[in-house]
Structure formats: structure tokens, C-alpha cells
Design a binder for these strands. Sequence first.
DNA 1: TGTACATCAGTGAACGCGCGTTCACTGATGTAC
DNA 2: TGTACATCAGTGAACGCGCGTTCACTGATGTAC
Lengths: 199, 199
Amino acid sequence: MAGIQEAKRLETGRRVLEAAVTLMQEEGLQALQIRAIANKAGYSVGSVYKHYPDIDKLIIAVNSITLEGMMERLSNAVAKADTPLDRLKALARTYLHFAKDQSNLWRGLFEHHLAGNDEIPKEHKQQNVALLTLIGKELAELNPSLDSDSLATRSRTCFAAVHGMVTFSMEGRFVGLSGEMLEKELDFLVEQLVLPSQQ
Amino acid sequence: MAGIQEAKRLETGRRVLEAAVTLMQEEGLQALQIRAIANKAGYSVGSVYKHYPDIDKLIIAVNSITLEGMMERLSNAVAKADTPLDRLKALARTYLHFAKDQSNLWRGLFEHHLAGNDEIPKEHKQQNVALLTLIGKELAELNPSLDSDSLATRSRTCFAAVHGMVTFSMEGRFVGLSGEMLEKELDFLVEQLVLPSQQ
DNA sequence: TGTACATCAGTGAACGCGCGTTCACTGATGTAC
DNA sequence: TGTACATCAGTGAACGCGCGTTCACTGATGTAC
């Protein structure tokens, strides 16, 4: 009859993580507390610690799932567009949409500052590289003469610029701008970034 | 002999605020604690509360000073450049420089999320408008046909994009990029943003 | 100029709360014979 | 198949710490006469 314990353990781990994701989604990072998670998952605080050494690791696990979901949406968006410029616009818009309809998950990605000692987890770095690669691929197609260093830098610049706009939008700093107009403005940003350089 | 009490009171207020600014500068927002401030200013915790109702207001006061200092540097930078494009580049670079050599003060501006109920202070909003105006003035000169709504939006887009790059840079996300190259890339961003639109 | 009282600046121990983390304990499952 | 012991999942009260905030108190300054 071996296996019951393992099944229970896996099930608990799953439920704890699921509860944490739901909590982040519904109430944000500051609601992601051991007691709340345990309660939502239907266990006691001690059980949570049987699966995660501390709350930081649990938050990281939630953020990994968020990144995964976001990357999936971005990949899908890219696949639907036909030109490099359209793909870049789709990336930017999808990023904005993700931030808007998963605002707590999205904020969680940036609000969580590791307590100093801990490293940024490999998984996150990989996802980050994957995102930059998505961008870089299109930039390279639009501008084949870019060397790989410039391409890496340029990809980051594009991501940073779009991210800045999305952040401002999420903070309500684009006052009085309708959703439609905001997307147009995001398109504008992307268009300008890939325009042939002046010099 | 009236006036000794008032002088003491003003002096204490000054020292408390000064200590808070120094603490933010040297150790960042998370070090801005009542006991640390009181200690640095040479008073007890009770005295701090005679001048600020809670720590949030004190942080806001520190951030106001930061914004003031930043705006002064930005204004000076603008005054030294001769063309709209150069002025925009100077704004972006100065913003980056400020973030770099006052990193804790700069981070404090964005890390401090008010605890929900409190409004964003008028002073901060005004400084924000002033910054957008600095940008808008140059954009209008470069593109006189922009109506005022578009100009307002475009100013925010430019600020957001530059802010995004500066944020990424502060997080070390422009890996392996020298300071000089980073500034060049920031110039690139500004140039692209003001390039004549394609359509 | 002096006296009596009121008001103010400043003190710091103590309170309170949130919240992550620990650990001795219980009952179920697994294992050895 | 049964028994005895070991191991594991799960519990939740209690601990500990950080830190903002309060408040009764002290001594200096101001005011009224």
C-alpha cells in the first residue's frame, strides 16, 4: 500500500501553491501571508513549512507561475502576427493586457524584493532571457546589421521603454486616456523605436 | 524673552527632517524608522511625533525634498542645452545621473506606497506636472502640430520610456553595458521618440 | 523685580500589533519479522 | 495475517522580533499681576 503518503504530500504541495497563487491574484503580494495561505489551502501553518522553507521561496514559486503564464500569452501573441513590427506591437499590447487583467500577479513580479542575500532564481532569469529573445528576434529581422551586443542592449531598451509605459498606466499616470488611446500610444512607442535611425 | 520656545521648535523640526533625509540617502527607505531618525537627530521618539503625525508624513516630506532637488538639477540641465533635442537628451541623462548618485533617494520616491487611504500630496503632483511640462515644452517645439491632449500624452510616454530605462539600469538589467554606452542608448531612445512619425 | 501658575519642548518606557517561524505532539501510513 | 516499531503528514499554540505609537512625566519658558 506504499504511496499514500507520497500522494498526500504532493497533493498538499499542490494545494498550498494553488492557494498562494489565488491569494496573490485576488489580494496582492501583501496578502500573501503564511496564515492566509494555510487557511485558504485548508491546512495549518506548519504544513506550509513542510513544503517551503520560508515565505520568500513561496512568493518566488508564485512569481514563476506568473512568468510562465505571461510568457505563454506573449508567445501566442507573437505567433498571430505576420510582420516583425506587428509582432513587436503585439508583444507590447499583450504585455499591457496581462498587466491589466492580472494586475496583482503582475505587480507581484516587481514588488517582491528579495531580502538581500537570496539570489534571483534561475527560473526567473531564464524567463527574462526568453522574453528578451522574443524581442531581439524581431529587432534583428528589422535591422540585420545590428551586432549581437547591440541587439541585446536594444532589446532591453525596448522592453524597458514598454515596461515604463505599462507601469505608468497601471499607476493611473496616463490620466484621462482611454484604453484604446493608450494602446495607440503604445503602438507609437514601438513604431518609433524601430524607425530607421537618423545618423 | 518670547521666542525661545518657537526657535527650539523650529530647530528641532529642521533637525528631524534633516536626519530623515540623511538616513534615506545613506541607508534607504527601509532604514527610515522613527527610532533611527530620532537618534540621528539627537532627540527621542516622542519629539519626532511632535512634528510629524506619523512616519508616512515624514517619508512624504523627505520625498518632497528629493523631488525638489531633482527638479532643480533637471532645470539646470535644460538651461545649458541649445536645441530641443539636446534639451530632451539632457533631461534624460540628468534623470539617469540623479538616480545613480542619489540612488536611495531616487528609489525612495517609488518604493514608498502610501498605505491606501492617504492621497498623493499636492506637492508631489505639482512637481510631477512641472517635470512633464519641461518635457512637453521641447516636444511642442519639435512638433508644433501636436494638440494639447496629444502633447500631454506624448510627454508622459517619453517620461515613462526614459524612466523604464533608468529603472532597468538601476536594477542592473543592462548587464555588461558601460556607463558611456548606457548614456548613448538613452540618447538613442530620445532620438527615436522625436523622429518624424512614419504615418 | 518677584511670585505663582500655565504652557510648551522633550523624554523614553511601555504598549500593541502583525507576522514569520518553531516545535512538541497526534494519528495515519509504512516496514520488518 | 498479525504485531511492534519507525517514519511521515499534519497540527496549532507559543515564541520572538521589529517597529510604529502612546502617554504620563520633567524641566524650561512664557504670562499675569
